[in-house]
Amino acid sequence: MFNPYSIKTDPSRCLRHRYNKSTCSRCLNACDQSAIKIDHGLSVDERSCTGCMLCAAVCPTEAITVERYNLNRTLGELLIADKPVLACSLKDGLMAHSSGPCLGFLSPEHLVSIPVLIDKTLQLNLSECSDCENTHISEFLKESIAEMEIEGVVLVDSVNELDYHDIQTGRRDFFRMLRREPFQAAHEFTSSLTGGGTRKSYSEKSLPMKRRLLNAAYRAGSVTSKKKLQKLYSHIAFHKDCNGCSACTAMCPTGALSKPNGKLYFNTFSCVGCELCEEFCPKQSIYIIPIKEHQTHALEVCVGDKNDQCER
């Protein structure tokens, strides 16, 4: 069976490409098969890759993504189901409302955000995973869920435990569905996601899809869910040696750091915590630090002049 979901790499986002002294090895560590090479540029050996997509899940900057996969559509499909089920499409006949690549692609951001956005508990159909060469991904998912204390996602290992109800949609229904409000809402959240593929240059700033998803969930979420989501954000600190050279703003792949009017700005929502600025800063004056619970306000845009360190 043809697997339409292959791994797509985008060197313009890879930390190793952006900064030749970067030590980032998140994808290397995630790959069981040693299919990823980064010594001479980011590449994936298709022969040994099993498509578990963990590399995509751990890459902070979307240098590795799942080709042909549209999260937008998944959201839409999950939205119209009462008890939504998501599965991979690699095994025939899996019961699901939406199917995509191997569920290893689900990063903590996905896992924490999707339930908030669809406002339902999401079931992941892992019933066939035990026979699959990518069986290790369920461990990964479990760990993420435990670590993030996620409540809206249920891992279903056996078909019997699955709470699945088929939805019949013909052509007419589909277009009617397109016009339905929940879909529109989800569509709005993520309409920008489809733009990801046309990036041309390294200097173009772009926010990974999973981060946009997280931000959308954060905006839509309740106070309690916000607290949970918050753990995935970072904050920044500057050492007094910072001379305001603003090289970090160029290095930052997402645009979290910027200097539009001579002042340095930091936007938590755009920071994916890749720490490339920290590695690169010629003065070694930047520190990426986890958000603390009492720092809720800091999640909004951190403007340079609130912090005189930023003002240079």
Partner: peptide, 27 residues
């Protein structure tokens, strides 16, 4: 700092610049 370098030497000795890879760090 970019790999491959956005600023590089061509075989005929010109210091060439690649628009696409440049991130504008001004190093």
């Amino acid at each position: 700092p970019v790999t491959p370098k956005a600023m590089f030497k061509t075989d005929d000795g010109i210091t060439m610049h690649n628009d696409e890879r440049c991130i504008g760090c001004r190093q």
